[in-house]
Design a protein around this nucleic acid. Structure first.
Lengths: 159, 159
DNA sequence: ATACTTGCAAATCGTTTGCAATACC
DNA sequence: GGTATTGCAAACGATTTGCAAGTAT
């Protein structure tokens, strides 16, 4: 009779996610992307994909996500954060952005779109894909093809 | 009588730069930019601004430049390379680009222009400023102004 | 049962810094 | 001569890796 074990698990789950029907949807999402839905990956997916305050998407660094995980009582090592972010990126769930030397940001918006970068506070803001367009790109040289275009509009405080 | 000393200096110079009238022009350039034309800064400026094979401009990393300096028998520490690259950038002689996580590139072209990035070999290629245009940028939010727009066209080898 | 994941701690990489020695004007 | 610059080696932060222990299917 493994009731006690089962009970423990439930408690663990409830503590981790704080919403009634927590990981439903996320599990499918991870499975569809081909990443095994482990406890920590689900917890991070929840933070990434469901915890966008008002905004539809998020831009986070590994350290930030780690901090959020700690705050949410989800014990995940930083190494796992990095692994997970890269796995998600490879699986097409995230997009990695480099805006400043020294650290990567991960964007939960994987559609074509571009970014404002607020230099004052290191924050990124989406520019909707149809709000901007790049024209006049010369043909890609020789045997290469365009994989993606990144546009970063760098903003500095000024009135 | 300091003839011998003078002689040594000449030899040093000739060894360092291998062209008859070596730093003329570069000295002015550094002075105009407000950086003192020291021996190592001149040597690096020479590598940066005069050693572009056929292309008008260069994209180098700190490590690359250090390697070139070594190869040219110019003894400069890596720390000085970094210092110099940042001083040149601040002085408006270079432009810093971040294309991949983990390292910065420095571009000797400071005019408005954008880049192809060849993911296969980590190489950057200029797209002339008038060969590309970004249209439809929403107004900069609140009290901020556009400082600069970076467009990176990422290329991957195909077929 | 087996292969995949995780955590930890150490290693690595690019970059920065403190400070004594040196070079510039 | 006085200040700016350099080199070295150590410090640093972000990221990665190796490996033993834990977890998913």
């Amino acid at each position: 009779m493994n009731f006690p074990l089962f009970f423990c698990l439930r408690v663990g789950y409830i503590r981790c996610m704080s919403t009634p029907r927590p990981y439903k949807g996320l599990i499918d999402r991870l499975n569809d992307a081909g990443v095994r839905p482990t406890r920590q990956r689900l917890a991070l997916a929840k933070l990434l994909f469901e915890k966008a305050g008002g905004a539809p998407y998020r831009h986070v660094t590994a350290e930030q996500l780690h901090g959020e995980a700690m705050a949410a009582d989800v014990r995940v090592s930083l190494a796992t954060i990095y692994n997970t972010l890269h796995q998600f990126t490879q699986a097409g769930l995230l997009r990695e952005l480099v805006v400043e030397p020294g650290q990567s940001m991960f964007d939960t918006n994987i559609d074509d779109h571009h970014h404002f970068y607020h230099e004052s506070n290191g924050t990124l803001e989406d520019i909707p894909g149809d709000g901007i367009e790049v024209v006049g790109i010369p043909a890609a040289p020789d045997g290469s093809s365009v994989k993606r275009i990144d546009v970063i509009v760098r903003l500095s405080d000024s009135e």
